[in-house]
Design a protein around this nucleic acid. Structure first.
Lengths: 181, 181
DNA sequence: ACTAACATGTAATCTGTTACATGATTGA
DNA sequence: TCAATCATGTAACAGATTACATGTTAGT
């Protein structure tokens, strides 16, 4: 699902073939996001049928039969629409392997106003989550619930990682005007 | 898959019924782990067939027909075995929504030696990952690759979150002897 | 000659979510 | 009485991984 948008995002730089896309994703982040060929190629086929990407004429006929995929105008529009809708979920979450992080990576393709608004929106959400988590921690502290050392420490790390995202977002917001691009 | 182990871990505290287990998971961490009924109940059935848990006699016959599940000796052994095998994957990763975190929560059921060994193992892995990531960042910095402000900032957050886990692990290792339990 | 990496693809499989169905209990 | 929550369960569906199949190219 998200794979499709990552493909579109990477093709913004220029045409690429499938294997290349996988390599970039791996390099660019063995970090928090992986794609297997079993989902990459079907995704490329779907996007081609959609008309979001096109296969460059002549490609696929060389000895390595590699196909060069190119972003279409429709694909660009679809990417933009996806980037502009605020991501659900905060911090270390289950499914959405941080949809926000994935979108964020491509924020350079938005205008300053657009991305600043998205970052502000995210900032509000993360702050709210952080407050909730800290309030919940206080509540547990003052109750008879005794969660044991390890459950408690786990909660501490989760809260701190959300706090880290919050501070990071603030710094990003400050610096984005100074940074390259 | 992981749901099964979480069930076993929670049943260590005492018998519970399904709905209760879901509530605990939600409370205990709307944080980074969720279970839907559609996976919880089938998991409970599988575990019952396995002989890892048993249904208390008489339960399921009251008006609310709720069933009380109890950990068996086999279930306890299966949980222990799972806790003792070092978790794969580091930090913010795709699938394993931090298998380590999930295991860590139940470390209280292991001996001091067992959990200290696991934490030490984790510490080594996280340090290695962190070093790799920092080296990669340096390499990119000194090359002509210019990833743009947002891709760069994304990388920064990922590295910092792994660094956070590293520092947290060190603190946990220091404090576990002092803490409760 | 052989191995590793390049390159694309499909099918079986697994796992989990969503949506539905059923019915009891509690409090407003 | 009505809504919310308690309580369990199934079936359809979506998504992704693994394993397999196929063939090329480059380096040792």
């Amino acid at each position: 699902m998200l794979a499709q948008y990552v493909i579109l995002g990477l093709l913004m730089e220029g045409p690429k073939h499938g294997y290349e896309i996988k390599q970039i994703i791996e390099r660019w982040s063995g970090l928090f996001w992986k794609v297997s060929f079993g989902s990459l190629y079907p995704a490329l086929h779907r996007l081609t049928e959609n008309g979001c990407i096109s296969i460059d004429a002549g490609s696929g006929t060389d000895t390595l039969r590699r196909k060069t995929f190119r972003l279409t105008e429709k694909g660009e529009a679809v990417l933009r629409a996806w980037l502009l809708e605020p991501a659900e979920g905060t911090g270390v979450s289950r499914n959405n392997t941080n949809e926000f992080m994935l979108k964020f990576t491509f924020f350079g393709y938005l205008t300053y106003e657009e991305r600043d608004k998205l970052i502000a929106c995210r900032l509000t959400k993360v702050k709210k989550k952080l407050d909730e988590m800290e309030a919940r921690r206080e509540k547990i502290k003052n109750s008879k619930e005794r969660p044991g050392f390890y459950a408690w420490a786990m909660r501490d790390l989760i809260i701190r990682s959300v706090a880290l995202e919050y501070e990071w977002l603030q710094a990003v917001r400050q610096n984005q005007s100074d940074g390259p691009q």
